[in-house]
Each structure stands twice: as structure tokens, then as C-alpha cells.
Nucleic acid binder design. Structure first.
Lengths: 338, 338
DNA sequence: TTTGGCACTCTCGGACGGAGAGTGCTGAAC
DNA sequence: GTTCAGCACTCTCCGTCCGAGAGTGCCAAA
């Protein structure tokens, strides 16, 4: 695209994202292109409109970027906005003070992200394709009831109540714990499964089975933890002034099932994904943009981190801050975890 | 209050909660009091308005209950609405399928409550005034880094990374684990503290200190887990049509700090608490009502469960269903927990 | 190719007015 | 003394109208 058209498109996006008001030729002229006349800008705008990058709410209104307009902007025109120092240190502080457990960490990450981007955020707990058991513990609740505690890679705790066929004392359990620990710790579910097959019938096999079940659930992600935060930030945007639009978004956010699927679909090859308006598979997110990246303590353990806001979003700022939070969280988790 | 006035107040509340439209004398006459003339009803309404139970949005509009009107209704006129069988079994199913860990359980409870009351819900994890350690485990991460896993009463897991001054092997830790377990399990924080004071300097004392710190945090509730769900249900109500009202509510719900304080304040003597509109300490909840009860696996371990909606709420239905969910959750937790 | 000029279009906000809903009051009936 | 029909009154709601203002597209000249 011609250079000047690009500049004008960039200016329209910038102006509209900050003011939320359709931008006219005069506004552009006085604020961005003092050496051009508004008439010239008008003809450029008309051209950009013909090509599908801009649209007008009505005949005599200013221009608004279309989804394709935003798309062109993020693909070719956007440069990352530098992050102010106080935002940087805010992120650092938040991560440093984050709780050590995955649950708490994920919540903190979502909170921080929502706060620095002033939009809604989502975060899923890091998951590995091959979950490994780091440690395991058995606690006797009742004679035939055992609490199985599993510490997975990334310091993720899982617990499950197991009703066994045989009774066992805590002393027996302690011995069993030691045996299972040396057999399983550091091993993946495949290796655990081999162990399971060779084990003789009895309590040990029973418990091994449960361990494998937990690992499977975890790997399939059906147990996945997804949190969201910052819906209140969306309410400040004029596009959510009447609540009908928000309803749609909230349905996606609060229905964790949807969200899980959405995140899994979206996080494909690229490490930064921007989905704008109608590009969204889910029709509920019309008018919204989703910016996603991954994070986690290691290459094998990755979760998804995302920002959801109106398509009229400060993309360059959002992307920069999203990546900063992802980096901060990853570092912190690496430090605590694996 | 005279019997007929009560009936009329009840009718106004009922009509308004279902229709959301100010209710006039004619509507009451045709739907509730066929043997009375609308003029008679009008004079009764005028009386109820004088006494402060009703109000008019404007001179020639129908009546709307005031906060005192709702208060009178819930105190004297409300009778619990029976719960349909399918709702009952919905609750039972949800509780049966709930995960065994506290985190998951609390989330499930909030979700269920939001769903059956069609309002927003909050739930806090059960907490005891005296937390007891049920089991403890130490896992070596690095030579001088230990992951401390605490299983508290109610099967609540806590984890914390401890950086120690001395290095320790996993074998040493295993021994230490056994010693600490026999010393601490079933003991409250007071007893743990006695232990701590008598312990000689060293790793054991260091760890005991951390255990106590975790217990303290837990008892003070500053670590407390509070979740919410069902905000999308509020959006269906006309009082949240423009989003400004919702902003307030979301600020309370998403700022867990506020919520924690709110719940702690509110759950006083009674096991069922209804706070209507201006009775709310927090001015953010003007126009909203909060219905609260407690739940938990035992007498000593109680969490708070609440419904938040517009003051124009189906109180009798809400209370009945809230109590049903609380009962279901308590039973299930008792079964799993203590 | 750019630009000033100009007619045109559309929204926005305020004013106006009629329809409708609901009220309070009054005087008569029971 | 309670109930009720009748009636005037009040206020909202909604549609219409109109002028101001913003922005456009087009055209002819530089």
C-alpha cells in the first residue's frame, strides 16, 4: 500500500482507539498532517474505505477502522509501545509477591494482566504434553479411605480421595509412599503405566491406577484451570455501555468449557496470536479482539495468557504489556517450579 | 400491620419482582384482589407509601417497594418456596460430581448457586477458628530449597517454598517429615507454637516456623479463598441495563479484598442473613440485595455462601435454594473431608 | 496531483404535543 | 366508617419537527 495511505490508516487507528469517536478529515489534518489539506485526506479516506479498511457509521460521519483495517494495522503498521518503568516494576512486584502454588499464581497473573492492560484477561494453568510426577503422598482418612496427594511438575498439587478395597494403616501407607515415590518420581505417565501393568494385584496397583488417571485427566486438559479477571475494565469502554454486548463476552468468560476450547484452538503455531472481531470463531465475540500468548516455566509446560477487549483496543500497548507479563510470570514460575 | 395491608404489600413485592414494572392499583385488583375496587387498593397503597414501605418513581406511576418494604416482606411475609425436583437433583448431581479439593469444591458450589438462583453468587472456602494440621510433607527442590506441603483439616492443601539456611537431602527430609508429622498432626497452631518454642535451632525449627506462619495466615483469613460466579445472570435484569450499576457490583466482586471483608462482617450471629440495598455497608451495593448463609463440613469449619442480585429479587426462592445448596455442599464436604 | 469551495447528508439534541397510565380526591352508597 | 365510581390532574413516553453542526463527495482551478 502507498506510504501515505499507510500513515493515514495508522493515524485513523490511533485516533479512534484513543477517542472512540469516528475520525474525520479535519481532525486528521490538524493533528497528524498539517501539510496536507483536508480535501486530500478525504480522497485518501475514500480510497481506504473502498478497499475495505475503513467504514463510516453513517454517510456524514468520520471513519472507523474495519476488522480488516485493524488486521492490516497489527500486521504491518504496529510497532510495540515501550513500557513505562512504573508498569514494569508493577509487574515485577506482582510476580515476586505471587503465591507459590499454581492456582494462586495463575490468578495473580490474570489479575496483573487485567490491571496493566485495562481490559479483561484470561489465563490457563501451564500444562505439559507429558506430565511428570515429582512427589506423591498418601494420607489415611478412614481405614478404607486414602487421600492421594500428587505433586506434579511445576509444583502443581492434585488431590484425590481414593476408596480402596483393602484397609491400610498409616504406617503401611508410609512404607507404600516411599516405594511409590522412588518408583514414580520424575517419571511420565507412560512410565507410570508400565509400572502399573507389572504390579501385582493389591493396594499398590489400585493406587497406581489412580495416579495414572489423575495424570491422564491432567494431560487431556479436561481438568484445566482457567481463570479470568478485569471484566470491570471493559465496562469503562463505551462499546459496552449497554449491557447486551457484555452479556456475550461474559458468557464466554464464565463458561469455562468454552474458554478452554477457545484457548486450545487459538494457541497454534505462533507465540503471539491476535484475533480480531469477525475472525473469532465464536460469534459471541463479535466486536471484540483477543490477544494471546503462551507462558510457563519451561518449554514443555505452557499455559495461555490472553487479553480480551473491544476491537478498538490499543494493540501496540496491549501486545507489549501482555508479553511483559508473560515473561515475568514465566521467569517467576521457572524460579519456583521445575 | 393490618392483614389486608400485608396482603397488598406481599402482592406488590411479588408482582414487582416478577415484572420489574411499577405496579398500579388496577393490576393488583385484576390479578390479586378481584373483590376489591381499585380505589380501595389505591387508598391502601397511599397508606403503605406514607408508612415508607412503598414508593413511586414519579407522581403518576405505580408503586415500587422501598428497602424497608422488602425488609418487612422478608421478615414477616415471606414463606419459603418449595424447590422443584429437577432443581433438587441438579444440586445433588453437581455436588456429587464436584472435585475433592477445596478449591474445586468452592468453585463448583458458587457455580451451582449462581445457576439455580439466576443471580450472581459468592462463596468462601470453609475456615476454622483453629486450623489443625492433618498431614505434612517436605519435598526437596534444590539443596537449600524445600517445598512444604500442608494438609489442613477439611482437606485443604497449602504449599510454600521455603529457602533454608542449611542444605538437606531428600533422605534427611523424609526423616524430618516423619518426626514433624507425629509431632504436629491433629494439633492446632497453639500447640504447634509450643513445639516451636521448645525446638532447638536448626532446620526443624525453621520449618516449624513456616508451618505456624501458614496456619496464622490461614486463621486470619488473609489467605482466604473467595470466588464468584454468575455475573452474566445479572445482565438479564433490567436494573443492570446500562452498565454503570454493574460496574459497582463488579468492583466489589472482582476486588477479592473487599469481598473478604464484606463476608466476614456480614456473617455474624444468624445463619441466614439478608442485607437489602441501603442496609449494605458498602455504598457500591446500593440497589442490590445480598443473601448469605454458612456452610462447611463441620461446626468448626465454616465458609460463607451468598447470592447477590437486585433488591428486586425473588427472595423466597433465593433463600430456599441458597439453603439447599448450602446443605448439599456441607453434606458432600463432610463426606469427603474431616 | 492538490486544494479551496460548495452543496448535500446525516446525527444529535431540544422543543412540542398527544396518548396513556396511574394517582388523589370527593361525594354518594352500603 | 368503609367502599367505590367518577373525575380532574400529573407525569412519562414516544413520535415528530427543526436547527445546528460535523463531515462528506464532487468539481473546477492552481
Amino acid at each position: 500500500m502507498e506510504n501515505r495511505k499507510q500513515s493515514i490508516l495508522r493515524a485513523v487507528v490511533h485516533e479512534f482507539t484513543t477517542s472512540a469517536v469516528p475520525v474525520g478529515s479535519q481532525a486528521l489534518q490538524s493533528r497528524y498532517f498539517v501539510n496536507l489539506s483536508s480535501a486530500t485526506i478525504r480522497s485518501e479516506l475514500a480510497e481506504l474505505t473502498d478497499r475495505g479498511y475503513l467504514t463510516q457509521p453513517h454517510t456524514s460521519a468520520g471513519r472507523v477502522p474495519t476488522d480488516s483495517g485493524y488486521r492490516y494495522f497489527v500486521d504491518f503498521l504496529m510497532d510495540l509501545e515501550p513500557i513505562p518503568d512504573r508498569v514494569k516494576s508493577f509487574i515485577d512486584d506482582a510476580m515476586r509477591a505471587a503465591p507459590a502454588d499454581v492456582q494462586g499464581m495463575v490468578e495473580r497473573v490474570a489479575m496483573t494482566l487485567a490491571s496493566v492492560t485495562q481490559n479483561a484477561s484470561v489465563a490457563s494453568a501451564p500444562q505439559g504434553s507429558l506430565a511428570r510426577v515429582k512427589h506423591l503422598d498418601l494420607v489415611s482418612l478412614e481405614p478404607k479411605e486414602i487421600l492421594l496427594i500428587l505433586l506434579l511438575e511445576g509444583n502443581l498439587l492434585r488431590q484425590q480421595v481414593v476408596n480402596t478395597t483393602e484397609a491400610a494403616s498409616q504406617a503401611q501407607l508410609t512404607k507404600l509412599t516411599a516405594r511409590l515415590n522412588s518408583a514414580l518420581s520424575g517419571r511420565s505417565s507412560d512410565e507410570a503405566r508400565r509400572h502399573y501393568e507389572q504390579a501385582p494385584l493389591g493396594l499398590e496397583k489400585e493406587l497406581l491406577g489412580r495416579v495414572i488417571a489423575v495424570l491422564d485427566l491432567y494431560e487431556k486438559g479436561s481438568e484445566s484451570l482457567v481463570v479470568h479477571d478485569g471484566v470491570r475494565n471493559l465496562l469503562r469502554q463505551p462499546e459496552f455501555a449497554e449491557s447486551s454486548r457484555l452479556t456475550q463476552v461474559l458468557e464466554v468468560l464464565e463458561e469455562t468449557r468454552y474458554l478452554t476450547v477457545l484457548l486450545r484452538q487459538l494457541i497454534g503455531q505462533s507465540d503471539l496470536q491476535i484475533v480480531i472481531g469477525s475472525e473469532n470463531a465464536s460469534s459471541q465475540l463479535q466486536g471484540c479482539a483477543v490477544v494471546l500468548t503462551t507462558y510457563g516455566p519451561s518449554e514443555r509446560l505452557k499455559g495461555v495468557l490472553g487479553v480480551i477487549g473491544p476491537t478498538r483496543m490499543a494493540y501496540s500497548q496491549t501486545v507489549a504489556r501482555l508479553q511483559a507479563v508473560a515473561r515475568g510470570a514465566s521467569d517467576r514460575m521457572a524460579e519456583l517450579g521445575a
